[in-house]
């Protein structure tokens, strides 16, 4: 048995970059897919709307771990040999898109109906209405909950350790196995997650209060 040394700490610290990278990838790709989900979720054509709602329900109503297993084992059955990075990125993209799509749907619907009607009165077609009138206003109210979801996403990446993907939590497990000092290792791992998430949480709360103050002071409606 050996003691937990500075090198062990550096190993865990270095693994934090994979947590960050996976979170960023999932956020970027999931965000792109999420915009599509949100827009389809409020489409005028009912089947499209229902399909988007079904997508959100399905991925918000099942455990992330199951989604990971299904993608990891499932896709390889169909002959696609996926490396861990691809499988995990796909799974987290799909997961993030379901949650972001739902959050952004709410923000799009929070824009008063009159804004759509004004666009229609000016004979602006649907897509320019959506992208030039509604979206710019919706983005403002979407920022605080989106930052809040980033916290959830960073925490969710810990689940990837269960299928053997080496990130912060998995690095902690490896170090525990090497040093037999879970009492030291896991609190450090938790501390590193806290260091990632806490600033985002504070930022999200601050944005939210700011917006409430702006709304209350009546600067913008």
């Amino acid at each position: 048995m050996r003691f937990f040394s500075v090198n062990d700490f550096l190993f865990i610290l270095a693994a934090t970059r994979w947590t960050i990278l996976l979170s960023l990838l999932a956020f970027a790709l999931g965000g792109l897919l999420g915009v599509l989900v949100a827009v389809l979720r409020i489409a005028r054509f009912a089947p499209v709307r229902l399909a988007a709602a079904g997508y959100i329900q399905l991925f918000q109503g099942t455990p992330l771990l199951m989604q990971l297993f299904l993608i990891y084992y499932g896709l390889s059955l169909f002959g696609w040999r996926l490396d861990a990075w691809t499988a995990v990125t796909i799974a987290y993209t799909i997961y993030a898109a379901a949650f972001l799509g739902d959050i952004w749907r709410g923000c799009l619907q929070a824009i008063p109906k009159e804004q759509w009607e004004a666009g229609r009165a000016l004979a602006i077609p649907y897509l320019p209405q959506l992208f030039l009138i509604i979206l710019p206003q919706a983005i403002r109210i979407a920022i605080p909950p989106t930052v809040g979801f980033m916290v959830q996403l960073v925490k969710a990446t810990a689940v990837a350790s269960i299928i053997g993907f080496v990130e912060l939590t998995r690095a902690g497990q490896l170090m525990t196995n090497a040093t037999f000092q879970p009492m030291v290792v896991y609190p450090i791992v938790a501390g590193l997650y806290f260091a990632l998430c806490w600033p985002l949480s504070v930022w999200s709360q601050r944005l939210e209060t700011q917006m409430q103050v702006e709304n209350a002071s009546g600067r913008r409606k």
Partner: peptide
Amino acid sequence: VEGIRNTPFLVQLYIIYFSLPAL
């Protein structure tokens, strides 16, 4: 509240199951 909300559930689980026996 902040400690729990800003760390993953899985790590909390590991602390309770693997770390606490040391105490």
